[in-house]
Structure formats: structure tokens, C-alpha cells
Design a protein around this nucleic acid. Structure first.
Lengths: 336, 336
DNA sequence: TTGTATGCGTTATCAC
DNA sequence: GTGATAACGCATACAA
């Protein structure tokens, strides 16, 4: 555990000279530089970033707070974040909140104490308490995937959930479906809210008003998708199509439909949000509104790094990335 | 950005007293405690862990260095690690090496500088350079998923790859297969080495010697699995069964088989390592030797934390968790 | 080109 | 019970 003093002593120079050589800052004669470098190697000196950070007020650490890294969408986001951060010399701490606001706050408290330089947050709810917590410490935040109130005054990188849901619903309507059920998570998550809004807009436009609205509010999990479909299949009129608010719900929905002895898409059409990574899929089946997960992680991190460097625009950014409609088998063809 | 001094000033006490109140260490009269607590709230004081860590030499941060968080096996491991670490008050930094030793070393250097308390490492190779690097700083390491030489003197948490591969191969042999190809990653990764060893042991036992051995060395990716199967199908004798060394290879293999106009399991049997998370799968199809990914992450982290607490046994642990054989459709039934 | 003094925010040590 | 002092390891400001 050699310190900069030990190196300085061995090289016969002062600590600050060692610091300059190591950080390539300031001047140092070739001879001095070499003596220092030799001493560094001989002692196996590893600079202590803690001490450096305490002085410089920069930890070169970002935090990624999301709901569940196990969801392939977020896994891919995380990879995008880590790649981008790493290229810029930053390390990334990750935290799973499981959609719990209290967990989220606990994590944020610790992260702020750790003096992370910036935070990427997938907020568990649209309430901006957590954001306020972070802003109080003047720590830059970029919100990922979900909206928070504009007055929170924070950068956001997300996709057009409303538009995507609208397109998916339109697709089903155009295929002849009239009884379309939406399988969603609670409305206090903005992606739920927006996707339901898009669904309802498409339904209303098609003259399928409130009486045709069949929305279920569960959670972003396979189990919840399964349950919601069980309920939906028992309701009247029985839906002929499902819109799943995310990938896991879609998988649960497909299972439930099949377990009920029905086929997708022949008996029931099924569309959803978030494509599964191509590396995990043998033959793509789901018709989805695909969000560019990796790109979202990348863009959000780039924005955060720009903020840290003071290179971002003054006004807070609200970046909405395009959704890609991937029409595959699960939506079926025209309803007979 | 109030400091402990500001709080002390406001509460009319000394900084050290504030420290004691905050950390619930040492004595403080109820009255003093209350005055401090009020001041903390009023000033929105957030303790600086950097400074604390500099003194205490504990950062309460672990690092998880793996090859690719995008692989669902590692995603689940990561979740196990984070859950366990978080429960114990630790945060986790994660890094993707993409099987590159040089990336691995770059990361480790940074992590050591950051003074992480411990490291969980899925080593890119069996060479123990990286381990030596870490040990030099007296930072505890637990190696995950893969072996490293025993003389590295390091804790390991992994599964019985050799045994799993043996069982999978035996299964195929018992089903009547004689031409079984193994689809692997390079031998300098211990899981490859072990799985090939298990495959060869089963083959040899069945009197299928070196001449029957068909091993392909690619990478742990879907693309590589696809390519290896393309090659294998062109070789003579054409294999009637494949053993994939991991989940992604298996998926690529299945794709290649189907693209070649063949069916699994009717024309070709296929077995592999690592189950896909149930949340992602609609109807499980692959016969696999399943490793308890979450449990591996959990156990490894527990061991690491025990080391940090000085509660682990002196000798380095070599924990081998059991593999679960999940026989499903892809292995087919007795060869006709 | 190199060195000295000092401070970052906290806590260990020892004193009162 | 509480406080003064120093130290953790490094880098900034200024001086030489």
C-alpha cells in the first residue's frame, strides 16, 4: 500500500512531482519522470482515487438506478450505459429498485453520499420526490425511459410510448379487431400512462369509445401478464386481441392464452412493447413497438457526461427516440 | 453542500460529536443528539462517504467484473450479487470485459484505485495475472463461474461443468447417438475446458474414442453457435447431436439447424448449458444442465462479505454448486 | 522544472 | 459526555 509519499521518497523528489508525472500534468524533466516511473513500478504504487476525489470533487463514477436489471430491456440499456461510461473513463454503480419508491430513495441517499458524479434514473413513479432529493445535492440526473413532471427541470431520454401504443392499437383495429384489451402496469408509471393513452386515442378515433375500453392494471411482470389475461378471457365481451405494455407482460399473456387452449394469432392477436434481444430469440414471433434500448442507455449517458463537462445546453433536454414497429406473426392477419 | 463543520457550528457542538450522533457511535446526551439531528435536517446535510472512506479505509463498494451482462446467465448472477450486497449495505460497480484480458486488467486497475472493498471476478482466462494484480493490493477476490489455478490461492464459486457435460453427453449416448459434436468456446476459459473434458470422458467411456470426437472451438455467442453448426453439418460423419457449451451457442445452433432445413429433435438432438430465465421463456424447449445463476451470485457475495468481515475460513474456498439436469424436448427420444 | 504549505471532509486518538 | 488535534492520500496555489 505504497502512497505517493513513498514513491516520492524513493525517487528522491517531492510528492507533488510524482503527482504531476502520474497525471501528465505540469512539467517534469525526462530524467525526473523516469526516476518516478521506476519507483512507481518498484513499489507497485496504485494511486488512491478516494483521496484524489476528495480534493478534486470528482469521483468519475455514475449510478444507474433502474427497476430490474433482469428485464432484458434494462439489461441492454445497462450495457449501453456501461459501454459509454467506460469509454469516457467512468465506472457505473447499478441498483435495482423493483419499482419501489422507498428502495429508490434508500439507494439515492447512499449514492449521493458516495458523491457519484451523476445519476441515471428509471424512476419508480412519476412523483418527483427522488429527483428533488438529487437536485438538492446539485448532482446531475438524467431520467431514463420514463417521464417525470416538466417542472422537475430534468433531462429525460425516452421513447414515444403514446405513439407506439397508438400504432400498435391501430394495427389491431385495421386488422378488424374491435375488442382489444390493454394489459398494463399502474398509471403512476409514465410508460403505463402513455401507452394506455395511445391505446385509448386509437380506440376513440376508431369510434370504439369508453364502452369498448378494457384496460387491466397489473405489473410489468410475466406473472402479472398471465393473470391479467386470465381475467380478460373471462370477461365479456371476450377480447380478440391484447396489447401488452411490455415484453414480460406479453410473454405471460402468450402463456395464459395457450394454457386456455387458444392459439396466437389464430384465436387471439397479441402485440406488445419492447423487442427481445436477437441473441436470445430463435424465431421472432411478437409484433412489437421496439424501443432502442442500447441507444437509450448510450444517449442518456452521453447527455449526462455532457452535463458534467458543462457542455450541455442550459435548458433541460427531453429527448424522445423513435420507436420501431416490428410486425411479425403474433398480430396475425385480417380477422376473418 | 453542508459539511460536518456546518452542522457542528449550527448545533453548537464539535464536529466529532456530530460524527458520533450520525454514526450512532460513542455517547451523546439526548439533548445534544436532538440538537444535532435538527441541524442535520435544517441544513440538508449529507455525509461525505469519500472522506469517511479515506479515514476508515472502507468504501462499502464491491466490483462485479464479468464478460457480458447481456447474457441472461450473468444478468441473473448480477442480480444475485446486487441483492446480497445491497442487503449488507454495499453498492456494486459492474464492468463488461467481453472476454478480453486487456479490458479486464484495465478495469481492475481502475477498481483498485477506487479502493473497492472486494472484487467478484469472472475471469476472461485461466491465467491468473489479473488475480495477482488484485492480490498485490490485498483486495479480497472471489472468482465466479470459472476456475483459476489453485496456486492463485483464491476463493471460487462455480458449478460442476465437467460433471454437467458428462451427464448431458451420457444422455445423448443413452438415446443412441454416436456422432455427437461439442460446440465450445476456447479452452483457456475453464468452463470450456471442463465441459469438453466431461464430453470426452462420457464419449471415451462409451467406447467412442478420439476418432468420434468432434469438438468445435468458437465463442460463447449466438453467432458462433450458428457458424459452428454450419461447419459441423458439412463434416463427415454428420453429427446427429450437438452439445452446446452455453445458452447463446445453443440458440445459434438451433437456428442453424433449422435454417439447414432440419428439425430439432427429430433430425438432430441438441443439449446445452445454462437455462434461460423462466420469465423470458414461453415454453421451455432446451434440455440443459442448469446452473443456479442467482444462487451463484448470492453465495459468491456472501463469501466475499465474510472475507471482508474476517469471518471466512483461512483456507481459500472452492465452492462447487450442483447442476440441475432439465430434460426437455430438444434432446428428443431414443434414436430410431 | 521543482518544492512548500495548505485544505478536501471525515474520524482515531487522546485529553478533559 | 464532549472536544482538540492530527491524519487519511492527494492536488491546488503559490513560490522558488
Amino acid at each position: 500500500m505504497a502512497t505517493i509519499h513513498d514513491v516520492a521518497h524513493r525517487a528522491g523528489v517531492s510528492p507533488i512531482t510524482v503527482s504531476r508525472v502520474i497525471n501528465h500534468s505540469g512539467y517534469a524533466s525526462r530524467e525526473t519522470r523516469e526516476r518516478v516511473e521506476v519507483a512507481v513500478v518498484e513499489l507497485g504504487y496504485v494511486p488512491n482515487r478516494l483521496a484524489r476525489s476528495l480534493r478534486s470533487k470528482r469521483t468519475h463514477t455514475l449510478a444507474l438506478v433502474l427497476t430490474d436489471i433482469t428485464n432484458p430491456f434494462f439489461t441492454t440499456v445497462a450495457r449501453g450505459v456501461e459501454d459509454t461510461a467506460s469509454d469516457a473513463g467512468y465506472t457505473v454503480i447499478f441498483c435495482n429498485t423493483d419499482e419501489s419508491e422507498s428502495e429508490e430513495k434508500k439507494y439515492l441517499q447512499v449514492l449521493l453520499q458516495q458523491q457519484v458524479d451523476g445519476i441515471l434514473l428509471v424512476p419508480a413513479s412519476s412523483v418527483s420526490d427522488s429527483i428533488d432529493l438529487i437536485r438538492k445535492q446539485h448532482t446531475p440526473v438524467v431520467v431514463l425511459d420514463r417521464r417525470v413532471p416538466l417542472q422537475a427541470g430534468v433531462d429525460i431520454v425516452r421513447c414515444d410510448s403514446e405513439g407506439g401504443a397508438y400504432q400498435l392499437t391501430r394495427l389491431l383495429i385495421d386488422l378488424g379487431h374491435r375488442h382489444i384489451a390493454a394489459l398494463s402496469a399502474p398509471l403512476y408509471v409514465s410508460t403505463s400512462e402513455d401507452r394506455i393513452a395511445g391505446y385509448r386515442r386509437a380506440m376513440a378515433e376508431a369510434g370504439l369509445g369508453a364502452e369498448a375500453d378494457q384496460t387491466f392494471f397489473g405489473a410489468f411482470t410475466q406473472a402479472s401478464g398471465y393473470q391479467m389475461v386470465q381475467q380478460a378471457l373471462a370477461s365479456k365481451p371476450r377480447p380478440t386481441a391484447f396489447l401488452a405494455a411490455n415484453n414480460l407482460i406479453a410473454i405471460g399473456a402468450l402463456k395464459a392464452v395457450r394454457d386456455a387452449g387458444l392459439r396466437v394469432p389464430e384465436d387471439i392477436a397479441l402485440v406488445g412493447f419492447d423487442d427481445l434481444p436477437t441473441a436470445l430469440v430463435i424465431s421472432p414471433f411478437f409484433t412489437v413497438a421496439a424501443q432502442p434500448a442500447y441507444e437509450m442507455g448510450r444517449k442518456a449517458t452521453q447527455l449526462l457526461l455532457a452535463r458534467l463537462a458543462g457542455e450541455a445546453p442550459d435548458s433541460c433536454q427531453n429527448i424522445v427516440l423513435p420507436i420501431e414497429m416490428l410486425v411479425r406473426q403474433s398480430s396475425g392477419s385480417t380477422l376473418s
